[in-house]
Design a binder for these strands. Structure first.
Lengths: 129, 129
DNA sequence: CTGCATCCAACACGATACTG
DNA sequence: CAGTATCGTGTTGGATGCAG
């Protein structure tokens, strides 16, 4: 594809990577649980227990952490219904939903290049004897 | 943009998040140095030393690691010029360049929501007394 | 200049136990 | 059910020194 990079200086991705608060998004997208939780919440509001069941392997601790952080950043809302037993519902906000699209991009890219990368990886590993 | 999510139960982000090798991409996008390096390489081939200067704060160890991993996955090429002193040049491959776009998405989103998230965060912190 | 190996501190994460 | 607190551990990442 884009071979022949005669002019390599024409890919203005960005000039500020760290300064623009990208780190926050990185941290979130790089976090296994965050992505999982957002994906689950994308299809509608969920209760705590429900999420823990849906997001396989997550510990109670990490789920709480993840939800708190998402809540703090205004990506999910936390609604407490004062019933017995207590019931808490988590739901994506508008901003939260917009992150959903971002995650979609991520997944699409990974699906697109998964095979190529896998092959490259095998070749490389082979060459390392 | 995509506001007005009246139907929350129809956001088919994805059905498999972990199974499809998304973790790999996550790891890479979540990695501070990887993103930085790719961004720097986006504007053209760079030498090792050059990268270390460009990517402020990276240790030699991490730069090597990062480059090796990128090389392994076929995202960058490593060309050795047998001169004295030795000269090694790193360059993004086609796949590598495509990741550039993904990173762009990331940065765009972060720029778009940076303010909102920041405000939400402050409010949340304030409420925590 | 480029790269690898070792040591060491920090932190993230999981498991567990306990409260409302 | 929902959430907090504590402890043990494994991985990450920086600093340093040495080699090609």
């Amino acid at each position: 594809m884009s071979a022949g990079h005669t002019d390599v200086t024409t890919d203005p991705v960005v000039s500020c990577a760290e300064e623009c608060g990208v780190r926050d998004v990185q941290d979130r997208l790089g976090d296994k649980w965050t992505v999982h939780v957002v994906v689950e919440l994308a299809s509608g509001p969920r209760r705590f227990r429900e999420l823990q069941r849906l997001v396989t392997g997550v510990s109670q601790r990490m789920l709480t952490f993840t939800l708190r952080r998402l809540e703090r950043d205004g990506l999910v809302t936390r609604t407490v219904y004062p019933t017995t037993p207590p019931q808490v519902e988590y739901e994506l906000t508008g901003t939260g939903h917009s992150m959903t699209h971002l995650i979609k991009q991520l997944i699409d890219w990974s699906l697109d290049h998964r095979a190529v990368i896998g092959r490259a990886r095998e070749e490389w590993d082979a060459k390392q004897t």
